[in-house]
Design a protein around this nucleic acid. Structure first.
Lengths: 172, 172
DNA sequence: CGGGGAGTTGATCACCATCAACATCAGTGG
DNA sequence: CCACTGATGTTGATGGTGATCAACTCCCCG
């Protein structure tokens, strides 16, 4: 898993995207990358030199089409995240985030509880949500106190009541 | 000019994109649109039925390539806006917004002052920046008091000191 | 046993939201 | 011509959410 992040001149950081296995990272047709890329777990990357890659896009229509589809999907995701950053409360942000992670990392879609291991530190979660570490921590313990999730240890999260969690995440 | 917006279930709105003349709007390869589109000014749209449009993309490589480039640019812009929404203060948001508008609407890049007419109401500016109308209004009057901008009337804005405004916008 | 990073919890503060009153202006109809 | 209305914008008072500052715990690893 990778994080894609941007930062202000004075060091404030915002994670603008999370990349899962089989995702694409890079910015064809631009001189310079605008974001920094950081590995959150051990990672195996398949690297292509820019020029040959762009040439391949030109020569293989299907490849270009695939990239277009992925880019459109990434744009949708980015916009959903804009709604979250601009208009959701801290609790809604944390709840949405946990549901997102469960969706990507959760085992088979079981009816009962789901558990997974967060690949992010609290600080990184804060950078995804536009919050501080302390606020993230407080919201997580609140969700735990209310019985919606379990926090057995460090990075492990258990979704106890997905329905209720979705209600706290509000919006789409 | 058009606005592209998303909303939470309980009605909070976030503008996720602004479209200028010659821009593209639409979501090929998806069943349903995720956002609502609203005209901010009188607008002339060139509409294509989905199926023929997608077919045209398949048959005209150059067209598909153009759309890919535009989509990548839109993604960059969306991510820049995520940094703004998540990590900037109200003053920084308003300053960045005004610079953005000046960039798009301002006349020729003169050394002196630039003036333009905001196509957005305060409420819409607030929805772009993830703020409330009142906060937007207050920040604008503060920038005016400090001599960085002028607000001759209603929607008209004059950039008096671009340099200083850029400093208040901080980040990239 | 010591050290450092990660996470939690508490106390306080500041920024921005909220609520409310008022100002301004364009459009409408008396 | 002017009062009336509604939409838009400004300004003020107050409060709450989340940031900040700080202390402490827990682990992992030396």
């Amino acid at each position: 898993m990778l994080k894609l992040s941007a930062a202000t001149a004075d060091g404030r950081e915002q994670i603008v995207g999370l990349l899962y296995p089989a995702d694409f990272v890079g910015r064809p047709f631009a001189e310079e990358a605008e974001h920094s890329v950081t590995a959150l777990t051990d990672v195996e990357l398949c690297v292509f030199p820019r020029k040959p890659f762009e040439a391949a896009l030109e020569n293989h229509v299907r490849m270009e089409r695939l990239l277009l589809r992925r880019t459109l999907a990434a744009l949708d995701e980015a916009r959903a995240r804009m709604l979250m950053l601009g208009r959701k409360t801290a609790e809604e942000k944390v709840a949405s985030f946990l549901l997102d992670m469960a969706h990507h990392l959760g085992g088979p879609r079981q009816p009962g509880e789901t558990s997974f291991d967060l690949p992010l530190t609290r600080a990184q979660i804060a950078d995804v949500l536009g919050l501080t570490i302390e606020t993230v921590s407080r919201q997580m313990t609140k969700l735990k106190r209310d019985g919606l999730i379990g926090l057995p240890s460090g990075r492990v999260v258990t979704i106890r009541d997905r329905r209720a969690l979705q209600e706290r995440a509000e919006a789409a």
